[in-house]
């Protein structure tokens, strides 16, 4: 008898999670040895003492999964969300600048793509700059950008969001250029036979045709927008936000704090991508995509 586990996605995902957990627990033993070995020896050695002490150290090099889970539980659910100790508070700070940056970046990307598709010379003049902009390491340019923008008196959130915008516009611009050019020749000829204006072609043909490309780009850019927001918090020495938590964690050797912040950030990114997927499915329904 053959049981088809592969049909659902739960089983494969669970297997991968299990493998990662096992590897993680195993790795925690040698990695923490530098801080735990004296204690293990003092307790008389043995497998029991090794596991107990390796997986429950207060300031481990690599915390065990359950320690991270407990830290997340404590800082997310056991603290009021407006307190500085709450990760929800920090996540909100980072998320708000993520969303501002994401929206601005998307707008910028779409506007650039519309310009490039309609004006031939813009492609030649802008495209190299757009591509070059992404070859600069973001860690190098972020401090300068933030310092310069900080001097202009813009609200802090826009200063931080500028990094997300900088990262986000690129996949949107590239995806939308391709999407806006995706209608086939006959569909475009048809518009010409109607003597349709460029804006009518844009709104009634190019834009709807570009929707699948837009959603693919948005999913990429929302995830990097979050990364950008975290990076933006590092050079300013911000006291709140996921980036600030990571920075403080590494200053004070609080590995648990770092890992908890990482997991919450990853969870937030996954949620944002999932939300976009839900919007995408809603748009499919409205646009009559074959199920």
């Amino acid at each position: 008898m053959r049981i088809d586990f592969a049909k659902g996605s739960v089983f494969p995902v669970a297997v991968v999670c299990l493998v990662i957990l096992v590897l993680w627990y195993l790795a925690a033993i040698p990695m923490n040895a530098i801080v735990t070995q004296p204690k293990i020896d003092a307790a008389g050695g043995g497998l029991y003492n090794t596991l107990l002490l390796s997986w429950n150290h207060e300031r481990p090099v690599l915390p065990a999964p359950h320690q991270v889970a407990l830290e997340v539980w404590k800082t997310v659910f056991m603290v009021a969300p407006w307190k500085v100790k709450s990760l929800v508070y920090h996540l909100w700070i980072t998320l708000s600048s993520t969303l501002v940056g994401f929206i601005l970046g998307t707008l910028l990307g779409v506007i650039l793509a519309i310009g490039i598709v309609h004006v031939g010379s813009l492609e030649k003049s802008l495209m190299p700059w757009i591509i070059a902009s992404q070859t600069i390491p973001i860690l190098a340019i972020a401090p300068m950008l933030i310092v310069v923008l900080g001097k202009t008196g813009l609200p802090d959130i826009f200063t931080k969001a500028s990094i997300s915008t900088y990262l986000c516009f690129f996949p949107v611009a590239i995806g939308m250029v391709k999407g806006l050019r995706s209608p086939d020749k006959l569909q475009l000829d048809l518009m010409q036979t109607y003597n349709a204006s460029a804006s009518q072609v844009l709104w009634k043909l190019r834009f709807p045709a570009a929707m699948p490309f837009l959603f693919a780009s948005l999913k990429v850019s929302v995830a990097i927008a979050l990364t950008g927001a975290i990076v933006a918090e590092l050079p300013t020495g911000a006291v709140s936000g996921i980036g600030a938590r990571l920075l403080q964690g590494s200053y004070y050797g609080q590995t648990l704090q770092i890992w908890a912040a990482l997991f919450v950030a990853a969870f937030a990114a996954a949620t944002l991508v999932w939300l976009l997927g839900a919007f995408e499915r809603m748009s499919w329904k409205r646009m009559g995509v074959k199920p």
Binding site: L186, Q187, L190, Q192, T193, N195, M287, G288
Partner: peptide, 21 residues
């Protein structure tokens, strides 16, 4: 004539817009 929208054109393929009913 085209600017005056003098003709209707039917292509080799239907060229319908798939997102429109």
């Amino acid at each position: 004539a085209r600017l005056a929208r003098a003709y209707g054109y039917v292509f080799q393929a239907p060229a319908l817009y798939p997102w429109r009913t």
